[in-house]
Design a protein around this nucleic acid. Structure first.
Length: 468
RNA sequence: GGCGGCGUGGCCGAGUGGCUUAGGCAAGGGCCUGCAAAGCCCUGUACCCGGGUUCGAUUCCCGGCGCCGCCUCCA
């Protein structure tokens, strides 16, 4: 069984689902006001792999990830660009999915939009007011955090400390009773999108959006709530506060992924080091970024840059090379190739494959230790290549296929080979003819020609092979 | 100031009280090759500093130094 770290307790513990056989996972999704960056890419990949692994172990996963489609930043951008806020949100969301699809990320099973749940949000705010834990002032409705049992659970600080900390930093200008209180409902300002409510026209606060959507779709006491480490406080703390104030059980487990650094620092607009995710997907194999992300533990910080991406790309090339070799082997061998006749090594070979699967599960069950899982798999890739080099086709194929299958669980499936067109094949044939004539000067010129067209040229007993 | 975390070989990045002390990339040597490419084999003797605990610490404890994140919108 998967053991996962819980931010609330600071300990690793088995993930025991509320409903046997299935897991409800809520992940805070993007606010759609601009193009996705590598930080978004990391959180999406982390939870994509969590989901894939849970499904691999036979659990049904209900994976809910919201889109925040009304927010200060969306409104601000629409305003400066003189456009409708809905248009900005829709366009950004389209960009989001295009990039995620390119990265091979599974779409969440449900994608609630904040604007689709405003009525429920109003109801929730009203219920909190009715219970006397929320109060209305001039610019909105706030939650009185003092009334919340265990406020500070995720921040690992008591409310007095949080109050002092917030009070010291914020020039208190609004009408909140306490600096830690937060807006459930923001009353309308001129030119902003609004909805009607018992507290006047306005829009919901961010923290209210997520608590409403997660409970609406996954129900009380759902299994896992995830998001970036930077959402722990105040966002998740405040989501939880609302549920607690209502007397509803909230997430049973809190999972947070580490942040991406660029040049050793967190990405931020003020530092000017925000790396566009779409650029990475366009300029390199999207699986390279996935590999990079999985090579670090999900709770550690991760350095992303051209050098680390190039590094991951090279590692991936070796995996793909094995896949190509196995394809070739598959054509020469019967399809039940693991037990190829006359090899005699079949049983030992499948034992080797089983051992890989066990090691993989051990690593993954240990708080999603993808670095260890990957280390094992990449080692298996090398050993499989080694067996194939030594003509142990049965052993190499069994081990190699096992490794590739398990890499597939992580979303690092093999890339489809690109077919060479007739013009390229013509050069290949001329080069083979030249090599047969031992006219190496001509052969080398033709190889240079192929390489200049972007093909990697490899000689084999069957003649020139090209790939890219 | 409070809270959380980190400092590992050229780079990225796991991990561990001693045992064969990840993995990847890069580098050097080798096998293979007409030469390459790809693949494989071999090599590197790393754990911020100072104390302490211990038979033994990179790993545990204390203290420093440096760095990062959160405490305000943020994946």
């Amino acid at each position: 069984m998967l053991r996962l770290y819980d931010t609330a307790t600071g300990a690793v513990a088995p993930l025991e689902p509320r409903d046997p056989g299935s897991v409800g996972l809520y992940v805070c999704g993007p606010t759609v006001y601009g193009p996705p960056h590598v930080g978004h890419g990391r959180f999406v990949l982390v939870y994509d792999v969590l989901r894939r692994y849970l499904e691999h172990t036979g659990l049904a996963v209900r994976h809910v990830s919201n889109v925040t489609d009304v927010d200060d930043k969306i409104i601000a951008r629409a305003s400066t660009e003189g456009r409708d806020w809905r248009e900005v949100a829709a366009e950004s969301e389209q960009q989001w999915w295009a990039t995620m699809d390119a990265m091979g990320v599974l779409r969440p099973t449900e994608v609630p939009h904040a604007t689709g749940y405003v009525e429920e949000m109003v109801d929730l705010v009203a219920a909190l007011v009715e219970r006397g834990v929320a109060y209305e002032v001039g610019d909105g409705v706030y939650l009185a955090c003092d009334a919340v049992d265990g406020y500070g659970l995720l921040a690992h600080q008591d409310i007095e400390t949080l109050r002092a900390s917030a009070g010291a930093r914020l020039a208190v200008a609004d009408e909140k009773r306490s600096p830690v209180d937060f807006a459930l409902w923001k009353k309308a300002k001129p030119g902003e999108p609004t909805w009607g409510s018992p507290f006047g026209h306005g829009r919901p606060g961010w923290h209210t959006e997520c608590v409403v959507m997660s409970l609406a779709l996954l129900g009380d006491g759902f299994d896992v709530h995830g998001g970036g480490l930077d959402l722990v406080f105040p966002h998740h703390e405040n989501e939880r506060a609302q549920a607690v104030a209502l007397g509803r059980p909230f997430a049973r487990r809190w999972v947070h992924n580490g942040l991406v650094t660029v040049g050793g620092e967190k990405m931020s607009k003020s530092l000017g080091n925000v790396t566009d995710l779409a650029e990475i997907v366009a300029s390199s194999d999207p699986r390279a970024y996935r590999l990079l992300v999985l090579r670090a533990h999900y709770r550690s910080p991760l350095e992303v840059g051209a050098p680390t991406l190039a590094d991951a790309s090279s590692a991936l090339a070796r995996v793909d090379e094995l896949a190509r070799r196995l394809d070739a082997v598959g054509r020469e061998m019967p399809q039940d190739g693991e037990r190829a006749p006359g090899s005699g090594g079949g049983r030992a070979a499948s034992a080797l494959a089983d051992a890989e699967a066990v090691a993989f599960a051990d690593a993954m069950d240990d708080d999603l230790a993808t670095p260890r899982a990957l280390a094992g798999l990449l080692g298996a890739v090398r050993r499989a290549n080694s067996l194939l080099d030594r003509r142990d086709v049965a052993g190499g194929a069994a081990l190699g296929r096992a490794a590739l299958d398990l890499l597939g669980v992580l979303g690092i499936a093999r890339r489809l080979a690109e077919e060479a067109d007739e013009g390229v094949l013509d050069i290949v044939r001329r080069r083979d003819a030249a090599r047969a004539d031992r006219d190496f000067a001509t052969a080398d010129n033709l190889r240079a020609e192929l390489e200049s067209r972007g093909w990697v040229v490899e000689d084999s007993p069957d003649g020139t092979k090209v790939r890219r």
